[in-house]
Amino acid sequence: MSSLVDRVAARRSWSKVTGDAPDHAELARLVAAAGRVADHSGLEPWRLIELRGAARERLGAALAEAAEHEKPSSKPLRAPLLIAIVACRRESHKVPDWEQDAVTAGVAHMLSLLLADAGWGVMWRTGSLVRAEPVRRMHELADNEELLGWLYVGGIPENTKDKPGHDRSIDPERFLTVVDR
């Protein structure tokens, strides 16, 4: 069995997925694990919205309204499961909004790694309409909430399972600064 480092290093985004997706029970198990990210003061400043079926069509209509297009966007139909990533900013004198957003992003990224490790294709998508009012309404966001994007989740197409992902290895020395003085 490969190590966690090897599995994370092999992670890639899947822009095309099949119609298969994890069921709610599998997703809930992975969300429980993803929620273990570092969280200053334990505020849990995040939530996820599971979008399947007609909810994806409603999102397409909201995206079209936001872009002032007549025809609904088909983008939400690219995957059978979309997971909306929502930062829920809590009142705190110790934890600023940016740190709460970082926790939310950490949960989303951890969930994407867990989904990938479970054999699902995942891509985190955003765009200029993420914060548009029709999109906010569709997700029923509260005043203290901001949408950070969606995880698009589905099966990995058979003809690509054995193909390596994009080679995204990095030179860690470009990004790792040593201060020992």
Rank of each mutant, 00 (worst) to 15 (best):
V5C: 07
A10C: 09
R12F: 09
S13D: 10
K16F: 04
V17T: 14
P22V: 09
A32S: 15
R36L: 08
L43F: 11
A54C: 03
A55F: 09
R56C: 11
E57T: 03
R58Y: 03
R58K: 06
L59K: 00
G60D: 08
A61L: 04
A61V: 04
A62Q: 02
A66R: 00
E68A: 13
K71P: 00
K71W: 04
S74H: 01
I83F: 15
V86F: 05
A87D: 08
C88W: 11
V107A: 06
A108E: 00
H109N: 09
L113N: 01
L115M: 10
D117R: 06
A118G: 07
W120Y: 13
G121W: 03
M123L: 10
G127L: 03
V130H: 07
P134S: 09
R136Q: 05
M138H: 05
H139G: 07
L141Y: 04
L141K: 05
A142D: 15
A142K: 08
E145V: 06
L147A: 12
G149A: 09
W150N: 05
Y152E: 07
G155I: 04
I156C: 09
I156L: 07
E158F: 13
G165S: 08
R168I: 12
I170C: 02
I170Q: 01
D171E: 13
L176M: 12
T177G: 10
V178R: 15
V179S: 14
D180Y: 03
D180M: 08
